[in-house]
Each structure stands twice: as C-alpha cells, then as structure tokens.
Simulated assay, not measured.
Amino acid sequence: METNINSFVSAEKQIINSIEKLSGSYTPYVIFTDWVKMMAISIQNSCTIHNKLWDTREKLYLDTVKKYNSGEVALFCKMHGLLWQLYQEYGIYDYLGDIYMRSGAGSKMTGQFFTPFHVSELCAIIRLKDVKKDENIKMNEPSVGGGGMILASAKVLCDKGINYQKNLEVVAQDLDWNGVYMTYVQLSMTGIKAVVVQGDTLAEKDYSAEKMLVTPAKIGVLL
C-alpha cells in the first residue's frame, strides 16, 4: 500500500496534539500510557469471555478512565479512531513508537526509546531475505518494546507478496507493561497472530494468564 505522507503526518499530528491538550494534571507520558492501556484492555475484553480475568481487566480500565472527565474521554476515543485510520489507510508502521517519541512521552528519565522504523525494516529485510512464499514463520521477541521489529517483519513479508496474517505467528515479551500494551494494540490492529507477555524472559519460565494478552487474530476473531 502506498502511503500518503501528508495525510499520514496530519493524522499522527492530531493524536500528538490531543496528547498535548490532555496534558495538564498529568504528563504526556502518563497520558500516553493510560491511552494505550485502555486501548489494549478494550480490545482484549471485546473478544474474550466474561470471567474473573475479564473483570480484573475491566476494573483496571475503569480505574484508569475515571481519572478523566467526559470531554477528555471523548478525546481518547477520537485518538483511538485516528490510530485505526492510520493502519487502515496508510499501511504497516510503528505509529505508536513514533507518537511516543514525538509527543514528549519519551525522555532520558523514562529510559525508553524506540528504534526508528526504517532501521527495523532494514533488519527485517536482511533477516527475511530467503523466506519462501508458503513458509510458516514463528517469531519470538524477548524484549519487544513497542513491537516495531515485528511490524517491520510483517511489512517486509507483505511487500514480498506473503500473507503475514496467515503465515506469521508471534510470541512477544517485555518487562514493561507500556511496551506490552503498545505491542498488543499494534499487532491487533494489523491482524497478526500473537501472544504478548509481560515478564522477564531470562528469569521466568511460566506466566500467569493475567500477564498474557492474545490478539484477536490469534483467537480467531475479526475486529
């Protein structure tokens, strides 16, 4: 899909301006992390059965959203819609990583920086240069960040005429919940089959259900 750069910048800029507008009582970092948390929970709970875990996540969502008034909540919803628009109209890209860095959410104090997408794409081109059209590909990202490398891999497969939604399966992990939520949202919106886990890849062997988010594509649900 050919990207319309001007429209892309406009839609992304609207999200960044909204984060700035919402930043008053809370920093851009808090606004961004609350936004991706609420998006991730709303996607996960919309495609899973109502059980104890569903209730736990719903409570986390409600505890987060109650920090904001109705106008601010409406702006969060608009931002969610704009992110969907980016993926639907302008193709695969690490939009959340870009928004995070451009909105002022990232800083030396948070210690969280995301690889520029063109660098991730170059790495994916090299790594996937010999992949065959009907080959099933399994990826494990032990420190996934915002999911940029997985998204770049999906884009490279797509550019090669390979159906990444059918042929690619992912297990992604990260210590930081913000990275987990970012990855989950982006992989859900691009239709990638994935399990995204919060935890220490080196120290932990088993993960509880509370630490695992499963994308709609992995469950078999269309958004």
Results as ranks from 00 to 15, higher is better:
Glu169Cys: 08
Ser46Gln: 09
Glu135Asn: 07
Gly179His: 03
Tyr61Ser: 00
Thr215Gly: 03
Trp54His: 13
Ala105Tyr: 11
Cys47Glu: 12
Val144Ser: 04
Asp34Met: 06
Asp55Trp: 07
Thr183Ala: 15
Gly147Asn: 02
Gly146Thr: 11
Lys66Val: 15
Val30Arg: 12
Pro116Ala: 06
Lys78His: 06
Met39Ala: 03
Ser18Trp: 14
Glu141Val: 14
Lys52Asn: 10
Tyr93His: 13
Leu187Trp: 00
Phe8Asp: 02
Glu141Ser: 10
Glu141Pro: 06
Asn4His: 03
Lys166Gly: 00
Trp177Met: 15
Phe8Trp: 10
Pro116Gly: 05
Lys129Trp: 04
Gly111Trp: 06
Met38Phe: 11
Thr27Phe: 00
Ile192Met: 03
Lys129Glu: 14
Tyr87Asp: 00
Ile92Arg: 04
Asp55Ile: 06
Val156Tyr: 12
Val9Thr: 15
Tyr61Ala: 00
Pro28Asp: 01
Tyr100Trp: 12
Pro142Gln: 05
Glu121Tyr: 12
Lys205Ser: 15
Val73Asp: 07
Ala11Asp: 15
Gln165Gly: 08
Lys67Asn: 12
Met212Phe: 00
Asp55Leu: 15
Ala40Val: 02
Gln85Ser: 10
Gln198Arg: 04
Cys77Phe: 12
Gln112Glu: 05
Tyr95Lys: 05
Tyr207Gly: 02
Met182Ser: 07
Asp159Trp: 00
Asn69Cys: 07
Leu222Gln: 02
Ser103His: 04
Ser153Ala: 14
Lys211Ser: 11
Tyr93Gly: 01
Gly147Asp: 01
Glu58Tyr: 08
Phe117Trp: 03
Ala154Lys: 11
Ala40Lys: 09
Ser103Ala: 04
Ala152Lys: 10
Gly199Phe: 03
Phe113Pro: 08
Met39Val: 06
Gln14Tyr: 12
Leu175His: 04
Leu82Phe: 00
Met39Trp: 11
Val197Met: 05
Gly199Trp: 06
Thr215Ile: 02
Met212Asn: 06
Val221Ala: 07
Asn17Ser: 11
Ile126Asn: 02
Ile31Asn: 03
Val119Lys: 07
Gly111Ile: 14
Leu60His: 14
Leu60Met: 01
Ile137Lys: 08
Asp176Ala: 14
Val131Phe: 00
Lys13Pro: 01
Leu223Thr: 03
Ile219Trp: 09
Leu175Cys: 11
Tyr29Arg: 13
Cys77His: 09
Asp55Gln: 13
His50Phe: 06
Thr27Lys: 04
Lys166Asp: 02
Phe32Thr: 08
Thr110Ser: 13
Ala203Gln: 14
Tyr93Ala: 09
Thr215Phe: 02
Pro28Trp: 12
Gly97Trp: 06
Gly71Met: 06
Val195Lys: 13
Lys21Ile: 15
Ala11Pro: 02
Ala74Asp: 07
Tyr100Leu: 09
Asp94Glu: 12
Asn167Asp: 02
Cys158Lys: 14
Met1Cys: 01
